[in-house]
Each structure stands twice: as structure tokens, then as C-alpha cells.
């Protein structure tokens, strides 16, 4: 039981994520979380503005159900499958973040300095969340997939476009974490 409540090691977690992909493929579907963003656009009537959104969203309803499940899973994991253990980060990471103004690194899943009430009530904080969301939503559709579609499914099926996209993910991610984030905070 204790093993279940503690954070799971990476060598258990990785294969379990592959199992999610395998199950969806077994059910005749595919593992791609960002597709739902497109479905939400279609449901809101975006088909009037671009052919990109002209589709029968009901065919994608299975994926919306996966999203609903994921939200429930997040709730179950934090409410019933967790103890008070904090994320065991590299001490260097904690020190670095501390010098950028992030306190208590690892005690929550996301930093209060970005997602807390005070942060989202400030212009800068709100702008960051909006800009970050825009980048994710725009970039993932431009690249044709996100971490689940390209990094897990695409690389598992040895597809070259996915390798290029994942290299792109890292170009952007390395730029943000190493150069841009220190300028913001």
C-alpha cells in the first residue's frame, strides 16, 4: 500500500503510459490529447470560420470521455492515492528556483507563484497563463500532435515526422527553461 501512495518510480510509470497508448490502439483509437482542443473548437462552432474545424465532433466523443476520465483520475490520485510526500527534486533545481523567487518547490504540483490566486489576479500572472496556453494550443496543432501523439505514439511507431516534432519540443522547452524563464522571474 505504501508503494502505491508514494510517488511511483520512472521505470514503473513509463511502461504504464505505454499501456494507455496500447489500450487505446486496442480499442481502435489513438492516443492524442491535443486533438480534444480542436474538437472543443468545432463544438463551439469554429467550423463557420475555417474548414479545419469542419468535422463531426461526435466521432471524437470517445476522446472527450478520456479527458473526463483523466480529470477524475487526477482527483482520485490526489484525494485517495497520495500521502504528504513532496516531489524529490534535485537540490540544485530547488536552489535555482528559489533564487528566481519560487519558494517551497516540490511541495505542490504547480507553483503558487504562477497558478495561485494572487498570481492570477495580477496582470503579469494572468498574461503568462494566457500566453502559455496560446503557445501550447497553436504549436501542438501546427506540429500535428503533442507529447502523447508525437513523443509517445509517434516515436513508438518509429515515425520520422514525430522525431522532428520532438526535437522541436526540446528546442522550445530548452529555450524557455534556460533563457526566457529567468528573464520573466
Amino acid at each position: 500500500m505504501e508503494h502505491l501512495l508514494n510517488p511511483w518510480p520512472w521505470y514503473v510509470s513509463g511502461p504504464l503510459i505505454a499501456l494507455v497508448m496500447a489500450l487505446l490502439l486496442y480499442f481502435g483509437k489513438t492516443f492524442g490529447m491535443s486533438s480534444n482542443l480542436q474538437t472543443f473548437c468545432t463544438m463551439a462552432g469554429a467550423g463557420k470560420f475555417s474548414n479545419f474545424f469542419k468535422m463531426n465532433w461526435k466521432e471524437q466523443s470517445w476522446n472527450l470521455i478520456v479527458v473526463a476520465g483523466a480529470i477524475i483520475g487526477g482527483f482520485i490520485a490526489t484525494q485517495y492515492l497520495s500521502n504528504d510526500s513532496i516531489t524529490e527534486l534535485n537540490p540544485t533545481t530547488i536552489k535555482e528556483l528559489n533564487s528566481m523567487g519560487f519558494s517551497n518547490s516540490g511541495s505542490t504540483l504547480v507553483p503558487n507563484e504562477m497558478y495561485g490566486t494572487e498570481a492570477i489576479n495580477s496582470t503579469k500572472g494572468l498574461l503568462l497563463l494566457i500566453v502559455g496556453g496560446l503557445l501550447v494550443g497553436f504549436g501542438t496543432r501546427y506540429a500535428g500532435g503533442c507529447t502523447s501523439g508525437h513523443a509517445i505514439t509517434g516515436l513508438s511507431s518509429l515515425q520520422k515526422p514525430s522525431l522532428i516534432a520532438v526535437i522541436g519540443f526540446f528546442i522550445g522547452g530548452l529555450l524557455m527553461a534556460n533563457f526566457i524563464l529567468p528573464l520573466i522571474f
Binding site: M33, L37, V136, G139, Y142, A143, I171, G173, I180
Partner: peptide
């Protein structure tokens, strides 16, 4: 599309600390 789109996604992923799946979760 893969390099530029991927890089834009990467910028957002590292800023928010979350890609689409984790966002819902």
C-alpha cells in the same frame, strides 16, 4: 511544421509545466 510548431509547443510546455494531458488532469 514539425520543427516550428514543435518549438512553439515546447515554449508553452516549459512555461506552463504542462502539456495538454496534464492540463486536464
Amino acid at each position: 511544421k514539425n520543427i516550428v510548431g514543435g518549438s512553439i509547443f515546447g515554449l508553452g510546455w516549459a512555461l506552463m509545466g504542462a502539456c495538454p494531458g496534464p492540463m486536464y488532469i
